[in-house]
């Protein structure tokens, strides 16, 4: 592996990663003789990550955000779906999984669990490059450089073990470890969620700096809407294993097209007391993903639900002229001729 920056082949207009029809169902143990039940964790998800952007992914716990991240890394084998990385299909004679994994790296939520307790910080960071053929010496040098870059003095931290570091320091190490392979896409799966608020802000700023410096693209998964808004260029909203809405951050947060996104963003604690909302965001818990509702999965909790919503599955389509072509939502109210009273007749 050369130390040169990874080649950008398709030019800035080509999406860095295109995800098509990603599906993962987990079998759960049912009753003794009954058929095995399936949890539809991710049930047909399509999206693109553009070069140089930060795509935020939000949704309640259990909506499939983290599963999607693990599916992208092939840490879990997807049941179906295609990944196209900068124009090249991943697997099937295209980009090898190994090469893809070098270009896409991930930072996990639990900073402690994601570091091997028996390895020193520098050994953890140097592991990836060594796997990809970098000599031990160079890999350690690179580890020191990265430690310095994430704000940890290598002469003090390189020889330490994870339990000797604070949560924020550990997460910096995890970021350095992910960057050691010189990836182009970094998946941040709730990467700052477990940190104290003050530390979180420092790490977020570090992430922004690193993005600039290394020309990175981020997939930023979090349940914290304020953080997502702060970080993201575009935002994807997931509900029960499906994409509910995706579009520019401003549009999704301020002019949400999907009732679920609207409810989510309304529930955001606002800094402005005049805009503080009193109404309950969304009623009830999300339905059981083992037997998700038919039709639109949100119809059981949606205030605009009509009978058609329980039978017809909405497609992820452009919201309309005012939203622009990049703002998509899966709601029958925005689907002309769907039969919903608020939809345009075709």
């Amino acid at each position: 592996m050369s130390a040169a920056a990874p080649l950008d082949r398709g030019g800035p207009a080509q999406p860095l990663l295109t995800v098509r029809g990603l599906v993962k169902h987990f079998a759960v143990k049912g009753s003794l003789f009954g058929a095995k039940a399936m949890v539809r964790a991710v049930d047909g998800v399509d999206f693109e990550i553009l070069k140089g952007e930060t795509l935020g992914v939000v949704g309640e716990s259990g909506c499939g955000k983290s599963t999607t991240a693990r599916l992208l890394m092939h840490l879990i084998e997807p049941d179906a779906g295609t990944l196209i990385f900068d124009g090249e299909t991943v697997g099937d004679g295209g980009l090898t999984m190994r090469e893809f994994r070098r270009q896409v790296q991930m930072v996990f939520q639990d900073s402690y669990a994601s570091l091997n307790p028996r390895l020193t910080v520098e050994a953890s960071i140097a592991f990836g490059p060594q796997v990809h053929g970098v000599q031990a010496r160079q890999a350690v040098d690179r580890a020191h450089g990265l430690l310095d870059r994430v704000g940890l003095d290598p002469s003090r931290f390189a020889g330490r073990y994870p339990h000797e570091l604070s949560g924020g320091q550990r997460q910096r190490v995890n970021i350095a470890r992910a960057l050691a392979l010189q990836p182009r896409l970094l998946i941040l799966d709730e990467a700052v969620s477990a940190l104290d608020k003050s530390v979180e802000a420092q790490v977020l700023n570090l992430l922004l700096d690193l993005k600039e410096e290394f020309g990175l693209t981020y997939l930023f998964i979090s349940h914290d809407l304020n953080v997502v808004r702060f970080m993201s260029d575009r935002v994807a909203v997931m509900y029960l294993g499906k994409m509910a809405e995706i579009g520019p951050a401003g549009a999704v947060f301020d002019k949400a097209a999907h009732p679920y996104s609207a409810a989510l963003t309304r529930s955001m604690p606002s800094m402005d007391p005049d805009h503080r909302t009193e109404e309950a965001p969304i009623a009830g818990d999300p339905p059981n993903p083992i037997n998700p509702p038919t039709g639109c999965r949100f119809h059981t909790r949606c205030t605009f639900a009509e009978s058609v919503c329980s039978t017809r599955v909405p497609a992820l389509d452009p919201v309309g002229p005012e939203g622009g072509p990049s703002h998509l939502a899966a709601c029958l109210m925005h689907e002309p001729g769907s039969g919903h009273s608020k939809a345009e007749a075709s």
Partner: peptide, 26 residues
């Protein structure tokens, strides 16, 4: 099932190397 093994898999390391470096020691 620890994240550091996942992270090692995500780095593209072959199974044998992961077992040797990350599993055995623990």
């Amino acid at each position: 099932n620890r994240d550091y093994v996942e992270a090692a898999r995500a780095s593209g390391a072959p199974g044998f190397t992961i077992v040797r470096v990350h599993v055995l020691g623990n």
